[in-house]
Design a protein around this nucleic acid. Sequence first.
DNA 1: AATGAATGAGCGTTCATTCAT
DNA 2: AATGAATGAACGCTCATTCAT
Lengths: 209, 209, 209, 209
Amino acid sequence: MGIQERKDREKLQRRNDIIDSAEQLFFKHGLGNVSMDHIAQEAELSKGTLYLYFKGREDLHYAVVNRGLDLLNEIIQRNHVREASGADNLLQLGRSYIDFSREHPGHFQSMMLFDASSFEKVDKEQSLKILEPGSPLMFLIEIVKTGQEDGSVRNDISPEKLAMILWSHLSSILELITLRGPLLNYLEVDKGSIIDAQFEISLNGVLSK
Amino acid sequence: MGIQERKDREKLQRRNDIIDSAEQLFFKHGLGNVSMDHIAQEAELSKGTLYLYFKGREDLHYAVVNRGLDLLNEIIQRNHVREASGADNLLQLGRSYIDFSREHPGHFQSMMLFDASSFEKVDKEQSLKILEPGSPLMFLIEIVKTGQEDGSVRNDISPEKLAMILWSHLSSILELITLRGPLLNYLEVDKGSIIDAQFEISLNGVLSK
Amino acid sequence: MGIQERKDREKLQRRNDIIDSAEQLFFKHGLGNVSMDHIAQEAELSKGTLYLYFKGREDLHYAVVNRGLDLLNEIIQRNHVREASGADNLLQLGRSYIDFSREHPGHFQSMMLFDASSFEKVDKEQSLKILEPGSPLMFLIEIVKTGQEDGSVRNDISPEKLAMILWSHLSSILELITLRGPLLNYLEVDKGSIIDAQFEISLNGVLSK
Amino acid sequence: MGIQERKDREKLQRRNDIIDSAEQLFFKHGLGNVSMDHIAQEAELSKGTLYLYFKGREDLHYAVVNRGLDLLNEIIQRNHVREASGADNLLQLGRSYIDFSREHPGHFQSMMLFDASSFEKVDKEQSLKILEPGSPLMFLIEIVKTGQEDGSVRNDISPEKLAMILWSHLSSILELITLRGPLLNYLEVDKGSIIDAQFEISLNGVLSK
DNA sequence: AATGAATGAGCGTTCATTCAT
DNA sequence: AATGAATGAACGCTCATTCAT
């Protein structure tokens, strides 16, 4: 029994080591420029071993994204105030997302690019993981609901719809900042202030008047 | 004289035929899953011929995106009303963009994915083509400016910043609808109404009170 | 332990098999007319496997030349008589080189052509391998030095200079015989006797009077 | 009639223009790194036109080599002294060859490399052009004969054999200097003095005692 | 569980040559 | 005579994946 446990623990550890290596390389060289050879070398494992822990390259990529989601979730939960109003928690969640994009730009980019490309081969199983109960998106929906219940959020639009809009809006601005820096520089748009402006616009349209 | 003209016309035609073929395949199989062999076969030309008309795969890809931009521009210009207020033209431009995403979903996706991936290898020349005077984005900035001048758009935020926010917001929702249909279905969010809602929220936050 | 050894042996064997195949094709069709596909087919391996054993075409080519150098070296060492005078050993080395060109005409040609073409892209590392201590050229220099010391070789010219002249002279005649047979036939020059004549001329000019 | 002449002249001129362009590019970029496109562009002609004047790439290359041979011949003839002894004219011819390799290193290299590779596809027609009456080699044979007749050159070896040896010897040293500069530098062998030494050795072995 | 040799289809690109005009 | 569009085979090389050990 104890033996089995140790083996399981070791297996999980090894899996995490591989993700560590992949992550590092993905962030450093870009998703498209990292081969399985590359990862195997970094992880100091044989290429074949990678396939014992992951179905394939895609799966490995997905594991990295998942880890990003966990990180994001952690930040969100940490900043969440159970007693606060829905509106206040919306604000908090937004700030958490922004913090995440700043502190983990690699993960943020990874998530953005994964989303974009993952739908070339629509894989329902994967794309719906963000629908799991604890996911940021589902948590956002809950907060919107709470806000609608406590009257701090408009209730003429379904919580799912509002949540999707808020999420998309903020994501798009963060993507702009993270991936399109040069464009903003060229237009002389300040990165900090565009977040503030977008925040005001999006939230204002969602909170109760 | 006429001969030269005919040849030029034919050459242009051939070029367009190739883009047609590439487009079709890109839309059908996804950007990353189309090879030069594939395109050559579809266009019923030898692979070498492709390289007479395009410098390489990237160039061909870019030509498809450019065509999408032209299409979008056309729709925008068609719906633009010179005499209308900035606010009204903002609304029109939004509707044009929506129409484009509906009528040319392949091009819309292509543009979204191109944008996303093109920044792995930041290529200023290409990424800045959207900054050319006639581009949708620049046109949007002009409209915002007009709106600020005629008082229909808030003027406490720079036109570039407002334009980027509006563009990002709408793009993100259209991307949601075009690429994440299953997600919306699962959440029982209606595609038409989410556009309306986002439109109201975004524009409300931008127009003068 | 024994397992590792066997694997190493097999790996070396496989590497040698590939060189065998490449050699055969290079000699048969000429250096420039052999593709990696070609070699893979001959070796009954996939093209990818070739790249497990060699960095690229150049590397494979180089391996063939290297094998030639080893063969030549072997012959030279076999015929070398430690106790003999420098002059005698010069004669022996010349004969060894001649033997090599006769017994391994493919390798001889390969070396000549490799030298010639390798200098289009001057690659110091490779071109200087012939300068390694055990190489035929360096050994020749040593023999000349010995000859100068024992008085059998003229010492008014540096050993390096003499060695280069001897080597070039003999190489050029062997190249003539190996690659320009038809020319000699046309001029009714006997291959055996031109070697003798060149030998006499070259050596006479180098030995002490 | 005059028209035909003019046309012939123009045709020849155009042919020479093409060789000019090819020459320039061959010398600048190396034989293997010049494409027909490249040459056509340099000559400001269409690629098709090249094939009106030359059977193919090889033929064009050969034309460049031929031009080199003409240049060499010119130098040889200029320095030839009809009244001098065979021995003196041998010396002169050698000096002419050396001058050629110095003043036209591009052509010299071109000739060396052409020779080397041309025998991969043995083409008798081409390889035997150097046997034409006026060619340097044939002229050398004549001089050797003269020397044997006037007693200044040893006559126990056939003139063809002696000529081939002299030619090969000098060529090999010039090739060494022109293509293997780094090797000589490494061995600290002076380029000027190795020519003198080789000259002394080769000629001494060939002249009458 | 771990290995790593082997695969083989695939890639983007080049280029000498042909041929209809 | 001159064009230049078209060809298509060839090239060196990559890489996710498999599988016998």
